[in-house]
């Protein structure tokens, strides 16, 4: 059980570290996708959804 808890904490820590590092890494010039651009589906909860459709 203790291994499971340690493993869970470890993989969560890895995920959050990579998430923060990725968001702090600037996109290359001309490749900025910071604003949501996807209009693929009608999921209003999706963070990639186009603003004008929400």
């Amino acid at each position: 059980m203790i291994y499971a808890v340690i493993w869970f904490v470890l993989i969560c820590a890895i995920y959050f570290t990579l998430y923060i590092l990725n968001h702090r890494t600037p996109a290359p010039e001309g490749c900025e996708f910071e604003s949501p651009a996807c209009a693929g589906c009608h999921n209003i909860a999706c963070t990639h959804r186009k603003d004008d459709e929400s």
Binding site: I11, Y15, L18, N22
Partner: peptide, 11 residues
Amino acid sequence: SLVQFLEMLLK
């Protein structure tokens, strides 16, 4: 995590 890492690597 892998997707975050790959995105960062590609950037």
